[in-house]
Nucleic acid binder design. Structure first.
Lengths: 235, 235
DNA sequence: TCAAATTCTGACCAACTGGTCAACATGCGG
DNA sequence: CCGCATGTTGACCAGTTGGTCAGAATTTGA
């Protein structure tokens, strides 16, 4: 039955993608830009509608309120964040695990800078929407990782550092390449940040993290490429 | 003559502080809170007026436009920033210089978190107001420090690291304790961040920076206390 | 004391805000 | 072809926005 329903729904689609889906993505993609630059209070539904190339009333047909757009967007933003969470298990080599995590976070800053900025705005505002996430999921995750760090340090694989502060610093150092991109471009004297810049960032952060934790330099180093923006999902 | 003018001006004051000065500070103090939480576009002059406990039209008597408030505020914010800039000369011991700089930046995040958040908002927006500052003063400062770092590394006092990325990471790691305070409080399971938290942060960041630069741990460690908010200037 | 400068403020304005709604268009299955 | 669900939209609304202004209150120096 569920299958039948899905088939019928599929029939409604144009080019294998329903109008609803396409417009929803258009709106979220536009909202991503506006919320990232203006923050929640500064963003206007009119501007979102303009960028999405839809009448404002059409935007309100898909999302009742501005807050609903923001909530939906926040969900789509947190998904990759939570993904990058998984990694780092007790069996891993701490050097490899941390180096990989740093590199993944830097690449996420490169691929989805707008998402990072919206998250930053949400934190600066005092996390009115994400406070539950912070107190539950995030805190639980850090507690788990703190235990792993403890195990690693007990085995003499690394120093006994505060996992809470360690990850705080890793997040700050990696996300700054999205949030403060303009400052970094100015300081580097560049018009755009290139692959080499992100690699240099990941390398230095990794070095600081590993040495700061008393871990001898890891040997596995490799860059990835996987661009994904909401824009590309809209086509 | 200049002296005479100053004396006459002083006579205008009430309690050794002119009405103009006092109200200007009241407005800037209120604006600091609103701009920090809402960003430039989200902030309203009405809310600033309410917090300052002045009629909106009185606010506009001192500052013609919202942008003027923002500009004046930005100037008062950048002053301590530029102060903490000085330090770090070629004669210094790199370990002491960097450790001191990190500690000063962390304390600044503690003492003026709102200022840090406004700066962060400005960067996220693409620095419409501070782009000149970034391209000129900031870049020049980093170039100078890059030369110092070079000298240090040539003398074998530290590794040859990119000063641009190094300071980018230091800024990110230290300012995150102001900008992302709520995230850090959630992760640490605290209601408020205490002295010990900022000390732990400064210690870990310092350790990561020094070891990341190949500098043996410094010996001079000391905490400071010097709270300064716009609020206190208003009385 | 008094005229001038400064400070204060309610009333007001055009533009815009988030959001509603009724009428209309479209595309589908049958 | 019809009837219905889905999608579209301009007109509209009350409240808010940044900002102006005329006139009143006050503080000033002499």
């Amino acid at each position: 039955m569920v299958e039948k329903k899905q088939i019928r729904k599929a029939a409604h689609r144009t080019g294998n993608r329903s109008v609803r889906m396409r417009n929803t993505l258009k709106i979220l993609s536009a909202a991503e830009k506006v919320f990232a630059e203006k923050g929640f209070d500064g963003a206007t539904t009119q501007q979102i509608a303009d960028i999405a190339k839809l009448p404002k009333s059409n935007v309100h047909y898909y999302f009742k309120t501005k807050r609903d757009i923001y909530l939906a967007l926040m969900q789509s933003i947190m998904a990759p964040w939570l993904e990058s969470f998984q990694a780092i298990s007790a069996d891993d080599d701490p050097g490899d695990a941390l180096a990989g995590y740093v590199r993944r976070k830097v690449m996420l800053s490169r691929e989805r800078p707008l998402a990072s900025r919206i998250f930053a705005n949400e934190m600066i505002r005092g996390a009115p929407v994400l406070s539950d996430f912070l107190r539950n999921e995030l805190r639980k995750w850090v507690e788990e990782k703190a235990q792993i760090v403890k195990q690693w340090s007990e085995k003499g694989k690394m120093d006994d550092v505060s996992a809470e502060h360690l990850f705080t610093i890793i997040w700050a150092a990696t996300q700054t390449y999205a949030d403060f991109e303009i400052q970094i471009k100015s300081v580097l004297g560049r018009q755009h940040l290139e692959s080499e810049d992100y690699d240099a960032a990941a390398d230095l952060i990794t070095r600081m993290v590993l040495r700061g934790c008393g871990i001898s330099q890891s040997n596995s180093e490799q860059a990835q490429q996987r661009p994904t923006t909401l824009d590309q999902l809209v086509r």
